[in-house]
Simulated scan of single mutants.
Amino acid sequence: MIGIFGIVMIFGMVFGGYIAAGGKMAIILHSLPFELMMIGGAAVGAFLLGNDLAAVKHTGRDIAKVFRGPKWKPEDYRDLLCLLFALIRIARSNPVDAESHIEDPDGSALFGKYPRILGDREAVDLICDTMRSASMNYDDPHQVEEVLEKRMETNLNHALHSSHALQTVADGLPALGIVAAVLGVIKTMGSIDQPPEILGKMIGGALVGTFLGVFLAYGLVGPFAARVRSVIEEDGHFYQLIREVLVANLHNHAAAICIEVGRQNTPAHIRPGFTDLEDALKSVKQDAA
């Protein structure tokens, strides 16, 4: 919702201020379709040229994040901590039972209680792979932590590709606007014998290209790239929480301590409250009993 409000505000303030200052929209509206075809078409073509089909699809899906916001909500972090708490308790009391959950999470009644987490393949794989490592008696938790760190860094870099691609387009739009403006000037020079009022409109139309390139770059595409990056990085905290809790488990801390380590390392605006989490963990213990 805030993304839509931002777009409306950008257009309202820019064009509203222009009209309030006495500007005429007629010349912009007359030139806009042609300038937009040149600038927008060139930008899309450059984007397609610089990215493969998978990256193009990935970027298309990520643009929706500007309006949807982060995937993981505070209640999802609470559910994740409850799931990890239950898995750690089972793994320590009955490793055989834990193995059934780890090897077949889709058929696990425990994972089934948290469908949003189960629906995220990376989160499930991260949990199961790390728990599997713990069952293999790794004697160096720092080694596991390093592997997890590299894995998450790789995943984050891949996820951020769409943001980088959009930012590249934003960086190129002002130059494409200049290209369109130069073409407009060339057109104007070919009609130099026309009266001043006609030449003025033609020069104004050419300048629309420069305006449009800068406006699209800094008013829309650039902010889109920044917002996509922000959302992806915030969702990354979900996977970092998994790492924090399961590495603490490898250090043989008490299950409650492992969960508190994860909770404390979650950013404040999405961190589950202590009392709320305690109530949820009590429910997990009752279900286990």
Rank of each mutant, 00 (worst) to 15 (best):
N155W: 15
D125H: 12
Q194W: 09
Q143I: 10
S108A: 09
P95Y: 13
G222Q: 07
T130E: 09
C82L: 07
I178C: 05
V179P: 04
P115T: 04
P196T: 03
L118S: 06
E146C: 06
I198V: 15
I88A: 12
G209Y: 01
V208W: 01
S100E: 11
I203V: 14
E146M: 13
N155Y: 11
A170R: 01
N157P: 01
L207K: 00
L118C: 13
A206P: 04
E197F: 06
V185Q: 04
V228M: 04
L166Q: 00
D125W: 09
R132A: 15
Y218C: 03
D193C: 07
K113Y: 10
G107K: 10
L166V: 04
V169D: 05
N155L: 14
G107V: 00
I127Q: 02
F211W: 09
P223N: 07
H161C: 12
R227E: 07
E122F: 12
P95I: 10
S108W: 02
F224R: 04
M136L: 14
D140E: 12
E99A: 12
P105N: 08
E197H: 12
S93G: 15
G190A: 10
P141I: 02
V124N: 05
G107F: 02
S135G: 13
A181E: 04
G172R: 01
S230N: 09
E149G: 12
I192N: 11
G213D: 01
A217P: 08
L126M: 13
I117F: 06
L173Q: 03
H164C: 05
C82E: 01
R151K: 15
V179T: 08
L84N: 06
R116C: 05
L207R: 08
R116H: 13
A175M: 05
L199K: 08
F85I: 10
G213H: 01
Y138E: 14
N137P: 05
L220H: 07
E145L: 02
I186D: 01
I198D: 07
R121D: 11
V144A: 13
L173W: 03
F85Y: 13
A225R: 00
E149I: 03
F215C: 04
V144C: 11
V96Y: 13
G209T: 02
A226C: 07
G184Y: 08
H101N: 09
A98E: 05
T188I: 09
E197G: 02
A165C: 06
L216Y: 00
E149Q: 14
R229E: 14
F85N: 08
I127G: 11
D106C: 12
I90K: 03
L212M: 06
L87K: 00
F215I: 04
H161Q: 15
L212F: 05
R227I: 07
V228W: 00
S100L: 09
L199F: 02
R116K: 15
G107A: 11
S135E: 08
L173A: 10
A225W: 06
S108V: 09
I198H: 07
T168P: 00
V221W: 03
Q167P: 00
G213N: 01
L126D: 11
A123Y: 07
L83D: 02
Y138I: 12
M189Y: 06
E197W: 09
D139N: 14
L83S: 03
T130D: 02
A123T: 05
H164F: 13
A109N: 10
A165G: 02
Q167D: 14
G112N: 11
H161M: 13
N137C: 14
G222V: 02
G200F: 03
R89S: 13
E99K: 14
F215L: 09
A86E: 10
V208M: 00
P115D: 10
